[in-house]
């Protein structure tokens, strides 16, 4: 059986959209995953300030959360987002990577509940937070 680090790495690297956004797995904790997305000019949403688009931050949150689900110790075989709510606290500083940490804080047989936070270099003030529900597919 592959360990969760392998699953997480594959989940990041084999998914085209995660690759297109340059996402990279940083580390795995128990029930939590940390993923980095480097700053890139193609991700700019506000041309006046160079701030990354909220949609790119959403993608990072969604991907990190999904990885937290499939690396959960109960070993689901797949997942899909049911719903995801993002709160944008402040604009991410242009030029800095965004790092998301997603935690699967409750898991049933069929549904995973996650929360996530996204930071830039200023680790004291979050850029965005998210909560969501994900499907859980079991090998059964």
């Amino acid at each position: 059986m592959p360990d969760s680090a392998d699953i997480a790495k594959v989940f990041m690297e084999a998914i085209p959209y995660n690759r297109a956004l340059g996402m990279r797995l940083i580390s795995l904790e128990e029930n939590a995953v940390i993923v980095e997305m480097p700053y890139d000019e193609k991700l700019i949403g506000d041309p006046e300030t160079g701030v990354i688009h909220g949609g790119a931050v959403s993608a990072l949150m969604d991907a990190t959360a999904g990885t937290a689900v499939v690396t959960h110790p109960s070993r689901p075989v797949g997942t899909a987002t049911i719903d995801l709510r993002i709160d944008y606290m402040r604009p991410a500083t242009p030029g800095q990577s965004i790092v998301a940490r997603a935690e699967c804080y409750h898991m049933t047989r069929t549904v995973a509940f996650i929360r996530a936070v996204a930071m830039d270099d200023d680790r004291a003030r979050p850029v965005a937070t998210a909560t969501g529900a994900f499907t859980v597919e079991r090998a059964s």
Binding site: P16, S58, D62
Partner: peptide, 17 residues
């Protein structure tokens, strides 16, 4: 834009964006 290459399906993040 793919998020699940097995199905395949669009990435939730692409849809959200």
């Amino acid at each position: 834009l793919i998020g699940n290459p097995m199905l395949p399906a669009l990435h939730g993040g692409a849809t959200a964006a």
